[in-house]
């Protein structure tokens, strides 16, 4: 900054202060609206500064997100947001960088970049809006669409096996892995935990595309059924679910998870206790899927680890300490030189 006296007084910002002047153009009823509102709220609650916040996205419905935030934003090209965000963080580690992506953008065309930002543990927050469909291109099946799904591009049913974003993230050495639902209250808690984690935070958000894949997550959102199909993870607590909190998940004799009815000799002590620092457990939880199991929501896994951009800065400091930082003349003359006399 060339003029040091331009610091803005630290007034408290409201969610509205994070809204840009652009009209939001998602389809009416799209799950993206709920997520947008929660993100604005969380940023305000965390005392984030607009000028320090950057939203980076790729291509897809979700990737319009940066336009609606009154922060710095980069709506880039298909699948590449993690790479662009990595560059931003390497250039300026002080910035608070959020990546907004979708199941197509993040897991299909940009799958490789997702793997690598996770393993590098760049300190960003990744929000993957999973609607199990291609929305912007008007309804083709995606990498998370269920087998047999009939869409415009799969009239006889999709024959690709879907992938589970959280399993992928864990396999890629992610240091923070969580899941939430667009319309669920606990989205705010998950977003807040993600924002506060140092390292790459990966959050899968179930998002309803009410135009091309409406009700894809109805089992998890419908008031009548949701308690039976969703299990909220709490660190140190047993895996209990159900409307009457009378069911749980335990490991059977061959260490496979099974749903059990509490009572009749089964107590909470027999259940799996959630440990958000246990990556094996996290992977096991990531494999639980509807309809066989209730699907876990909340923080699956969290680990403290160094961030890529800090390590890189550290190497620069270390090199300067070891070799000094020569001026240009000394630099250009370092190594083998020889002098030709007059």
């Amino acid at each position: 900054m060339s003029t040091p006296n331009t610091t803005v007084p630290l007034t408290t910002l409201t969610p509205k202060d994070f809204s840009s002047d652009q009209d939001v153009r998602w389809c009416p009823g799209c799950g993206d609206y709920a997520i947008l509102n929660q993100v604005r709220r969380v940023l305000a609650a965390l005392g984030s500064r607009r000028e320090k916040t950057v939203f980076v996205s790729g291509i897809g419905c979700s990737s319009r997100f940066p336009y609606y935030m009154n922060t710095y934003g980069f709506h880039s090209i298909h699948g590449r947001a993690p790479a662009i965000a990595s560059g931003v963080k390497i250039a300026n580690p002080e910035l608070d960088v959020w990546i907004v992506t979708g199941d197509g953008d993040g897991l299909s065309i940009g799958g490789n970049h997702l793997l690598h930002i996770l393993r590098r543990n760049v300190n960003v927050n990744i929000l993957l809006f999973n609607n199990r469909i291609y929305g912007l291109t008007k309804g083709q099946y995606s990498p998370t669409s269920e087998e047999g799904k009939k869409t415009k591009s799969s009239p006889m049913g999709a024959i690709d096996i879907p992938i589970t974003p959280l399993s992928i993230a864990l396999a890629a050495e992610a240091s923070f892995v969580a899941r939430a639902i667009d319309v669920d209250k606990n989205l705010a808690d998950v977003l807040q935990a993600a924002a506060q984690h140092r390292g790459t935070s990966f959050v899968e958000i179930y998002q309803d595309c009410n135009i091309f894949n409406h009700f894809a997550f109805q089992y998890a959102t419908d008031k009548a059924t949701k308690d039976e199909h969703v299990i909220y993870l709490e660190h140190g607590k047993p895996l209990v679910f159900g409307k009457n909190r009378d069911k749980g998940i335990r490991l059977d004799g061959s260490h496979k998870p099974e749903v059990v009815q509490l009572g009749k000799g089964v107590t909470e002590d027999d259940l799996i206790f959630h440990d958000q620092n246990d990556e094996n457990l996290a992977f096991l939880l990531s494999r639980l899927s509807y309809p066989q199991f209730p699907e876990p929501m909340g923080v699956f896994y969290k680990a403290e680890d160094d961030c890529y951009e800090d390590l890189l800065d550290g190497q620069v400091r270390q090199a300067v300490a070891a070799k000094g930082s020569p001026d240009l003349d000394a630099f250009l003359r370092s190594g083998e030189t020889y002098t030709v006399g007059a």
Partner: peptide, 18 residues
């Protein structure tokens, strides 16, 4: 970077960040 595309995209991120 993990590939050529990531390399140029990271560079674009660097340019954006100044």
């Amino acid at each position: 970077a993990e590939d050529e595309i990531a390399a140029v995209c990271a560079a674009i991120g660097v340019a954006f960040a100044g």
